[in-house]
Amino acid sequence: MKFWGLTIKVNPLFLLVFFLFFLLDMMAEALVAFGLVIIHEFAHLIMAYSAGYKVGRIEIFPFGGMAEYSGFLEMEPWQEIRVALAGPVFNLFFALLLYLFLYSGLLKTNHYLLLLLQYNLLIGIGNLIPALPLDGGRVLRAFLVRSRGIKRGNELAIKISKYFAISGILVGIIVLSLGKANLWFLFFFFFIYGMINKEEKQLLYYILQYLSRREDFNRGLKIRELSGQVVDGSLPVKEAIYYLNPVKYSLFYILDLNSNIIGIISESRLLSSYFGQKDKELLMKDII
């Protein structure tokens, strides 16, 4: 469905969870959860718009959503962190305000307000878990990409995310075996693990998309910090692209067998060589 030009897609898994709530006679809980997930995603959207980005599509999952942004959000880690944190911060701030109103007596406690308080806390805290595709995982990935580069940063973020998901599944199984059933907790971490595997399968596509858009991003900048790296001339171009600094413009100083500098390759030259040549076995010394 479309709302103000924004395409909103509801994932079938969300509909399944909604149906389970219906069978369990928990429609009030389902409506509160659905409403808060939508508002949570709009908090991301508002922050993205304020930073100059547009959102074309949002897909709603049982525990949050995923948005597709136009522009170059992935090129600017600090902006991505701001956008990622907007959702959980909204939920936690809303929960704090609600608690203060209830505690002070300005609002009379009832079942629906307590549901609102509880679900805001669950969505806010749950999304801060540092595991993809949760908001905490996006923050983690942005930090790692900034410090380790696009490929190694993403790979490490996926590895850490898997540790958290597997740990959550194990805790859920242990709790279940002790007779303290919490199937939602277990379902949540199984869902996260499945989404991490999906992210891992799409990683190469994500990296190539990032690299293909990087030249357009560079053209829009009037000034940028410089990053210099010294590499062996026998390093394949297809490997060198992963050493691009995500927040600086990269220059590569090419060495021969005697460790003498035989040339300098700019980031633009590297990317045009990679995407413009059919021979993907090119070495750095071949494109000087």
Rank of each mutant, 00 (worst) to 15 (best):
K159N: 04
K159Q: 07
S161M: 04
S161D: 04
S161G: 14
S161E: 03
S161K: 01
K162T: 12
F164Q: 01
A165P: 06
I166V: 15
I166L: 10
I166Y: 06
G168E: 09
G168K: 01
G168T: 05
I169M: 09
I169N: 01
L170I: 15
L170F: 14
L170M: 11
V171N: 07
V171R: 08
G172I: 00
G172N: 01
I173E: 03
I173P: 01
V175P: 01
L176F: 11
L176Y: 12
S177T: 15
L178C: 06
L178A: 11
G179Q: 10
G179L: 11
K180H: 06
K180I: 12
A181C: 02
N182T: 03
N182R: 01
N182S: 04
W184K: 00
W184Q: 10
W184V: 13
W184D: 01
W184H: 02
F185A: 09
L186I: 04
L186D: 02
F188G: 00
F189D: 00
F189I: 01
F189W: 14
F189N: 06
F190H: 01
F191E: 00
I192A: 00
I192K: 05
M195T: 02
M195K: 09
I196T: 04
I196M: 07
I196N: 02
N197S: 11
K198L: 13
K198S: 15
K198A: 12
E199V: 09
E199D: 09
K201G: 06
Q202N: 15
L203M: 15
L203Q: 13
L204E: 15
L204K: 14
L204Q: 11
Y205R: 12
Y205E: 12
Y206R: 14
Y206I: 08
Y206E: 14
Y206G: 06
Y206F: 14
Y206P: 04
I207M: 12
L208K: 14
Q209D: 11
Q209Y: 03
L211I: 07
S212H: 07
S212V: 08
S212I: 07
E215M: 14
E215Y: 08
E215R: 14
E215Q: 12
F217K: 08
F217V: 04
F217W: 10
N218H: 07
N218Y: 09
N218P: 01
R219C: 00
R219H: 13
G220E: 13
G220F: 03
G220K: 11
K222H: 11
I223D: 07
I223T: 13
I223P: 00
I223Q: 11
R224P: 05
R224N: 02
L226N: 08
L226W: 08
L226I: 15
L226T: 12
S227G: 08
S227A: 15
Q229C: 00
Q229E: 10
V230Y: 11
V230A: 00
V231N: 06
V231E: 08
D232C: 03
G233Y: 10
G233C: 09
S234I: 09
L235W: 03
P236M: 05
V237L: 12
V237Q: 07
V237P: 02
K238F: 06
K238Q: 10
K238Y: 12
K238H: 11
